[in-house]
Amino acid sequence: MTEAFTAAEVLAGTKLPTMEVPISARTVIMGASASRDWQTQHHDHAWAVERAGTRDIFLNTPTQAGWIERYLTDWTGPRGRLGRLRFRMRSSVYPGQTLTFQGVVAEVTIDDAGTTWADLDIDLTVDGETVTECAARIAIPKDDDDNPWAKDAGSWKP
């Protein structure tokens, strides 16, 4: 049960379950639309190929962020609270590809406000090649009684 997820079961080196997302034109455009990103390269195939010189339309940045967040909170459950995301997009992600998410815990620390942080390295790959590399910092419950969402502005230090 995700509700029972606590820091007790998280160590440096803990691996997250792999998540696979098949990419279609529909998923690319749905992500662009949900993030209200109407830049042409995220919905118009002919424009992307002829004007931008890419092989197809490609995933926009907010969709990648949204999927990374989902990947993390699918693992932590609703008590996981995202503090920080840093990601570098090395190559574009196109319809027809399958995007694979893999994550590993780099470090677990407790800050001076008592928040338990998991720092993770997340690798987004297509056919085994990294397309986006991400460093994420997410607060996780220390035990059953802890909830990172209870931190107020003064004690939340992402």
Binding site: Q39, Q41, R51, A52, G53, T54, F58, N60, T61, Q64, A65, R81, L82, G83, R84, L85, R86, F87, R88, M89, S92, W149, A153, W156, P158
Partner: peptide, 16 residues
Amino acid sequence: FTSVVATNCEQEYTRY
């Protein structure tokens, strides 16, 4: 320079 791609994004969430 008429085409654009994003390469890096770093977000910090101060309050929900």
